[in-house]
């Protein structure tokens, strides 16, 4: 079953890349524009630090490391599974979501397979470069830190997936609404800065309830040797968030009304 699902997913990626390569110039321009756009926040941080202002106990490379890892997280999740959001919104709006439901796979999986977005690999490239620059200017982390960071990073991908599922589910009911991305960006903005700058209630929410901090802040903190919440508790938070998102998706799917004709 898993082998078969993986084969479908790989075929979906091949198909998406082949489709995107039909317009290569647009693809490369798209990646470049995305790269510039994603660098806006790090540039703002850079300018703030240049003007002499700083987050307490965090130097510029430490802050940029959070944003670099956050970009890598987006660079992996956006092409690999975040496409379920635009794919669902567009298909529900056009009426072609029906075509996913006549396939012998889960609708969510079909949205995933047909929603691979090769253009979003630009985020991964940008995040990799930014993280590399930061790490080159910071004390090296040991193997245990890297392993721990990897576990938190994977959990962060679970949080990204949960967000994608909630947004896609909302797209079933809230037809044609691309403002969901802006809402998502606003909410996740809490995860691209050092957690110590937030009040305790907010830290609790973004660590355990809507665990945005898992996406970039905690993995980066681990590499920097800074304290993070215990793995057990944050894992529970991520599992809860994921379960909630899947439940929400099922509810939204059951209320799908299709387009006329």
């Amino acid at each position: 079953m898993i082998k078969s699902a993986f084969a479908v997913y790989i075929q979906g990626i091949k198909t998406a890349i082949a489709s995107r390569m039909a317009y290569r110039t647009d693809y490369f321009i798209g990646i470049t524009v995305m790269l510039i756009w994603e660098m806006v926040v790090p540039m703002v941080v850079f300018l703030i630090y240049r003007s002499g202002v700083a987050f307490p106990n965090w130097n510029i490379y430490e802050v940029l490391l959070i944003q670099g890892i956050f970009m890598i997280a987006k660079g992996i999740s956006y092409p690999c599974f975040f496409g379920i959001v635009w794919n669902t919104i567009v298909r529900v709006q056009e009426g072609t979501f029906d075509l996913l439901l006549i396939k012998p796979r889960s609708a969510l999986f079909m949205a995933l397979v047909t929603g691979f977005d090769a253009e979003d690999l630009g985020k991964l490239l940008g995040g990799g470069v930014l993280t590399g620059i930061c790490l080159a200017n910071l004390p090296p982390a040991n193997l245990a830190q890297w392993l721990n960071m990897f576990i938190y990073f994977i959990l962060g991908q679970g949080v990204m997936f949960s967000f994608a599922v909630i947004m896609a589910g909302t797209g079933i009911k809230w037809v044609g609404n691309f403002r969901l991305y802006e809402i998502f960006d606003s909410v996740t903005a809490f995860g691209i800065y050092p957690q110590s700058i937030f009040a305790k209630p907010i830290r609790i929410i973004i660590s355990y309830i809507i665990p945005i901090a898992m996406i970039g802040a905690f993995p980066a903190s681990i590499l920097l040797g800074k304290p993070v919440p215990q793995l057990g508790w944050v894992s529970l938070g991520v599992a809860g968030f994921l379960t909630l998102s899947l439940f929400y998706w099922r509810r939204m799917l059951a209320s799908y009304t299709s387009a006329g004709g």
Partner: peptide, 30 residues
Amino acid sequence: VARIGAVFGQKSQLLWDIPPADAFELNRAI
């Protein structure tokens, strides 16, 4: 749905920018 098929005259299962052979291959996997 594994035992039925459907053709919608106004909703295409083909992929616009790539050949039908690739869409068939994707369906083989699905």
